[in-house]
Simulated assay, not measured.
Amino acid sequence: MKFTKKYEEYMQGDREKGLPLVGLKKLKKMLKACRREIEAHENRIQEEREIGESSDSLEIVENKCNNNCSGHCPVCDGTFFPSLLQEMSAVVGCFNERAKKLLELHLASGFKKYVLWIVNKSHRNHGSLIQEGKNLVTYAIINSVAMRKILKKYDKMHHSTQGQAFKAKAQSLHIEILQSPWLCELMAFYINLRNSKVNNKAPMELFGDCSLTLEDNKPTLSCCLFELLWVDINLTCSICLDMVFDAVSLSCGHIFCYMCCCSAASVTIVDGLKVAALKEKCPLCRRQGVYRGAVHLDELNILLRESCPDEWEKRHQVERLERMRQVKEHWQLQYRAFVGI
């Protein structure tokens, strides 16, 4: 079965729920319209060859045809990319909002949890939470596959790299769904609830499974969506080269230890990443302004704590001493500044 048909069948249920999706059929029609435009140019060249136009005129028409879609295509740039950008923004926005609500419901405690569970009647048991988490992970990955396939088709049709350039632009605008920290959180959330020995419904057709693998002390969070896409998230901090501890995800999607992030952003743990300067760059992709939008990955921290208790406790003791040292230095500086020493 072709992906477009499989995608349309799967997303039919989400369309009925009012969830946004990538309109593959509509986008393909736009590309076909562009193809017809290219063929029209080729036909005009053939006609001019037959009637014996001058070589200069023929060369101009040929260059126009060859360059029409090699760089920027007026047919596609005016409709295809704006439409895809709007759909991607809607999908990522919907996914992030639903993921936040689901994780907030699971992580809430005390009176807040009581209120949330009353409001969310459909998510009052762990089985429904697991199912909703699986639905959201599948929704994210299958839409990501759809976006990649339509951009690949664009580049193939136009013999260009504009699709890849658009993908890079989407990443810079934080609308690349696989870049979302909430995808990592949902995968960890699913494993946490699955390991709680709660009876659950059978997996959906397209959903493979989520797993945490530990090979050579290098943890990896993985998820498979049928045979369409494997998502592997490396949980080794690129700064300390150890398993991430108190993990945070920057706006660019890269995951680090919280203290490593503070060090890279030239801030203390007392001040936090919210006060990081906009000029500070991600240690991996060198993108600026990624620290203020950092997200604490609470579900991932729970998963790693339960899966690697010895390593987690060891790191906890080391980080606890370092945090106490930084806090002590911070207040000593504050005291000296106050008394004028």
Rank of each mutant, 00 (worst) to 15 (best):
K6P: 01
G110W: 07
F166T: 06
F111E: 13
E329G: 07
E97H: 13
D209P: 08
I233Q: 01
L225V: 05
N67A: 11
M11W: 02
C76F: 00
M324C: 15
L31E: 08
C69D: 02
R336M: 10
P74A: 06
A33E: 11
R44H: 05
N43D: 12
C252N: 05
S144E: 07
M11V: 07
N125M: 12
E132I: 05
L58F: 01
K121M: 15
M11I: 13
N200F: 11
F3E: 05
H296C: 07
F226Y: 08
L235N: 01
H296G: 08
L183M: 03
R287L: 13
H106L: 09
E132G: 05
E59Q: 13
K153C: 07
D216V: 10
F189K: 04
L214D: 11
I60P: 04
V318T: 13
L173F: 10
K112D: 06
F207G: 01
A99D: 02
S109T: 13
C261I: 00
K149R: 14
G18E: 06
G289E: 00
S266A: 09
V145D: 00
R124E: 01
C240H: 00
F95M: 05
F80T: 01
I269H: 08
M243G: 05
Q131P: 07
S211F: 09
Q86F: 14
Q179E: 04
V22W: 00
K169R: 13
Y7R: 09
V231G: 03
G208S: 10
R36A: 08
G71D: 05
Q179R: 05
I118W: 14
R323Q: 14
A108K: 02
E205T: 09
N120Q: 14
S222A: 14
D216K: 07
L273A: 00
S83I: 03
G253P: 06
I130A: 03
K2S: 10
S122E: 08
M157N: 06
A337Y: 11
H41F: 15
V22E: 07
K314W: 08
L221A: 03
N195R: 15
A202G: 02
E176G: 10
F81T: 00
L212V: 08
S238I: 03
S307D: 03
